[in-house]
Design a protein around this nucleic acid. Sequence first.
DNA 1: AAGGATACCTGAATGC
DNA 2: TGCATTCAGGTATCCT
Length: 280
Amino acid sequence: MPEMPEVESVVALIRERIERKTIVKIDLIKTDVIKYPQAVDYVRLLENQTIKKVQRKGKYIILEMDNKILAVIHLRMTGKLLFTSKNQELDKYACVVFHLNDENKLVYADIRRLGTLEAVTKDELPRIKGLYTIGAEPLSDEFSVEYLTRILNHNKGKIKPFLLNQKYIAGLGNIYVDESLAISKIHPARVASSLTEDEIKSLYKAINKAIGEAIADGGTSFRDYRNALGEKGSHQDNLYVYNRKGKPCKFCQTAIVKTILNGRGTYYCPTCQKLEHRLR
DNA sequence: AAGGATACCTGAATGC
DNA sequence: TGCATTCAGGTATCCT
């Protein structure tokens, strides 16, 4: 479900509300979302600890506790991290409830329960492989045209699966990959290493634009996504191609097409995004 | 070794 | 209406 812009919106809202607060009690409703350590130990590690710092890396949310434990949360498809105030009702799909010393709650809720909660020391960080091997973030200094050029080099795979791979670029998912490729007018099945210098520059800008605009809109909510206060984002109204099958391309009016690429629904403009290199 | 299917889950939408 | 099928903002793991 949530990609970097959605996770960023969640983190921005919870940060100011839970940093310096203490977790006085944890209620377990559905324990299967806790992947490490076992649920009882997870609770033991985090109860009576103060939340020192809230961070985000790619799609991961990291709560750094006073005892140096890192509570790492990944929302996967339908996970939500909700700041629930004193008199507010619990989410129907609440799995884990963190009671705070100000009587408010941080609630992990997840319809499909594909999301993951882990508590690790710094030394144990490598066991969360997806976090340990994560690539550069869009909109960061590390993410540059040179970086993108370097990772694309020699990659014989298609550009869309490449962009979905978190070890190259952190935070892109199915929506923003399609958006980035649409903005830069690159076909999703193009071979990654075949992009020209100009196309790489264009893709670099497009990724930052797609992510930046989505963050500004508070994320995309065409289905389940809600921010930490249970509110929808608005970027679903500003998408170029995603979920716009049959609607006119915003650049050339051609009807947007939907196909399946490597098992993922894929939207693109068949006029703007040609597979064959333009001949002139 | 890379890269494609499959597994993990539930609910909503669609098809017959 | 009812029942079956398909699909979903993700990723680890298995297979070839």
